[in-house]
Design a protein around this nucleic acid. Sequence first.
RNA 1: GGGGAGAUACCAAAGUGGCCAACUGGGGCAGACUGUAAAUCUGCUGGCUUAUGCCUUCGUAGGUUCGAAUCCUGCUCUCCCCA
Length: 376
Amino acid sequence: MDFKLLKTDTQTSARAGVITTDHGQIETPIFMPVGTVGSVKGVSHRELENDINAQIILGNTYHLYLRPGLDVLKQAGGLHKFSSWERPILTDSGGYQVFSLADMRKLTAQGASFRSHIDGSPHLFTPENVMDIQRTIGADIVMAFDECPPGDADYEYARKSLDLTEKWLERCVQRFDTTEPLYGHSQTLFPIVQGCVYPDLRKRAAENVQKYNRDGYAIGGLSVGEPAEVMYQMVEVVNSILPKNKPRYLMGVGTPENILESIALGIDMFDCVMPTRNGRNGMLFTSEGIINIRNKKWQTDFSPIDPFGPTFVDSRYSKAYLRHLFIAGEMLGPQIASIHNLGFYLWLVKEARKHIVEGDFLPWKNAMVKKVSKRL
RNA sequence: GGGGAGAUACCAAAGUGGCCAACUGGGGCAGACUGUAAAUCUGCUGGCUUAUGCCUUCGUAGGUUCGAAUCCUGCUCUCCCCA
């Protein structure tokens, strides 16, 4: 993997760049749609490629390991071939499931033992086998196995958790660097900076990950319950330490506002379930603000969903029709909303990139933040 | 013509003397959702701007009772069976 920094903003820390992988290029800053089990829920590949212009999507190690399982993935020739997705893929390590499935796992120095949320069967994730699983999945970018502690973790817990994440990182790198990709394209490993909401821990973590000299670095453990302001402070602390010539990936973030502010702080990559999950639940993100399409106020609003939006659904379908689909429980509703939201997210980061390159990012960003966070 | 059953809030449907402004489901209205156990979950749904408070409600008109959606009587309407 290669990263070229094309432009750094003069008024903010925003950057525009290009990542090159064996499956193609990614223009940063970028938003990566989440496709946990090898599918961006409710959205077809054709729509992802042609309408949304997704340049890279996510998969999840834990979920793909349980279903369809490693045998199937291996026989298929990896996730790219299995799912017929020829652009880049990034897989999360299952570290987030250490957090979200906390009541079904146990942490030890060795790793994390899970009970499957599907059938209750026991499984052990270690830094080593998580690297092996991600080799089998075959993502272009694979993530280190970490612990993602909750946003309200106290200092003692946060410190111990970071100790664990750092030990696991050492083992992840060791394993990754002594194994080979299985399908003829190269893979790269991103470490994850943890440390909760404690600046000194974040600082220590950001310094620690650099000794492995990887192609990119991620910031994890944010947007897990802490206030947005605290998240921005942590991003600032970490980004002041991470090398400038490597992409920085803020995991799991976020709202359009979060993304714009984090781009200004020097983040290059984002992923979040919000455009798809909230979309399925009737929430539309637009350049004019946030819409709950189920609300009665849209019942007879026959104007397009988003007249200047980038995807075909934006101009083709009206708000009233989309509301009707949601109220009637038609699955087309969530599909349209997901396509719209992803199209908007990709449009937003593309615009941000354009303004970084053109040199007027800051005023554009400030005006945009105001608009996108408004409730309509 | 004869016999039987029933009328409860937007709909369906519990409740058959006080714990009933009334279970539950649907519908409606609103909210939540940030490296996806989510096409999920939560709240409200007679009125009074808030209520452990007040007022009006269980077809309708009366009655019994300290107290009635619940018991009694008349009326209206609906459904089923037999002719």
